[in-house]
Structure formats: structure tokens, C-alpha cells
């Protein structure tokens, strides 16, 4: 999604959010990521005013007070954390681990195929379809991509073919490279 993203060209407008909308987003985030509750004040302080950057292809970025991108979403989809945020607070998103062979493909933006999730080096935590997941890698400590399950983990095991996780945001893509927005 962010493969061809470029900060300069892709962001079409930035809006200050009304406090009522802010509250709504906070509530939504907590609903989606209940584990976030302990640290949400660090990520999105209550007093801060956040902004939303509207981008091409119906992408919206949530910016915190310092202008850092913290969450993004596509159309009306779920809010997903950016990788920089996820590296700081890695515990609140369901994690799926891919094997070593898949890393380079994911890093160039490919979707994760089922075999990469079922082979010996990989490991899945049970999750439903359409869950936001952090893609971890065999032998690595940090997440390398964020995606959405297109099948439930059970189905992945059963089918073992085709796309298992749709990759949205990966290391070194356009969003990763973009700097804080002023």
C-alpha cells in the first residue's frame, strides 16, 4: 500500500481534529487494541491535539502532537499502528511469525503466503480473519511488517496455499521513510 507512497506528493491535506473526533478515535483504538490501555497516554496524550493527513488512495494517517505518524488506515478499515510505533510498543498487536525465506519477499512488499506461515520456522498465534497482525520473522526480534489476515489462522493451516496475510506497511516503504509532518 505504501510502496509508492511519497510524503511530498501523496499527502493531499492535513486537518486538525476536533476534540470529539479525537475521543472517538481513541475509543476505537482502545476497542481494537485493549492491551493498549496502559500506554495510550504515552502514544496519544489526552491533552495533545492530533492531526489527520489525508493521502491519495483513501489512506489516512493519524499524526500525534509532534507530527509523527502513529496510526494509519485505508478507507473505513481498522486503524493500524505504524512500524515505528510498533517497535516501541510491540505488545498490543497479534503477532504472526514467518520463516526466514519469506523475509526478503515481505521486505519488498509482497503479501505473506500461507506456506511461509506454516513451515517449521514460522509460528502462528490463533486469530480470526481480518485481524490486524504484526509480521515477525524467524530469528528476528522486531516486527518487519503490518498486515491484515485474509484467512483465519485455522484456514491458513488447512489450505496452505495462496495469500495468508495482506501486507499493508513494511520496513523501508514510503510510510517508513516519511519524516514527521510539521
Amino acid at each position: 500500500m505504501f510502496k509508492k507512497f511519497e510524503e511530498k506528493d501523496s499527502i493531499s491535506s492535513i486537518q486538525q481534529l476536533k476534540s470529539s473526533v479525537q475521543k472517538g478515535i481513541r475509543a476505537k483504538l482502545l476497542e481494537a487494541y485493549p492491551k493498549l490501555e496502559t500506554h495510550i497516554d504515552l502514544i496519544l496524550p489526552k491533552k495533545d491535539s492530533y492531526r489527520i493527513a489525508k493521502c491519495h488512495d483513501h489512506i489516512e494517517l493519524l499524526l500525534n502532537g509532534a507530527g509523527e505518524q502513529v496510526f494509519f488506515r485505508h478507507r473505513d478499515g481498522p486503524w493500524m499502528p505504524t512500524l515505528r510505533l510498533l517497535h516501541k510498543f510491540p505488545y498490543f498487536v497479534t503477532m504472526e511469525q514467518v520463516d526466514k525465506g519469506a523475509i526478503r519477499f515481505v521486505l519488498s512488499g509482497a503479501n505473506v503466503m500461507c506456506p511461509g506461515l506454516t513451515s517449521p520456522g514460522a509460528c502462528m498465534t490463533p486469530a480470526e480473519k481480518n485481524t490486524v497482525v504484526a509480521i515477525m520473522a524467524e530469528g528476528k526480534e522486531h516486527a518487519l511488517a503490518i498486515g491484515l489476515l485474509t484467512l483465519s489462522t485455522e484456514e491458513i493451516l488447512a489450505k496452505n496455499k495462496g495469500i495468508g496475510i495482506e501486507t499493508y506497511h513494511f520496513l523501508n516503504d514510503g510510510l517508513w521513510k516519511s519524516k514527521p509532518v510539521k
Binding site: T38, V93, T94, M95, Q97, M136
Partner: peptide, 9 residues
């Protein structure tokens, strides 16, 4: 592995 991937602080 399972420990590592568990959600939670």
C-alpha cells in the same frame, strides 16, 4: 516462540 509472540506487556 509462543512466549515471544504472546500479546501483552
Amino acid at each position: 516462540v509462543a512466549e515471544r509472540l504472546k500479546v501483552g506487556i
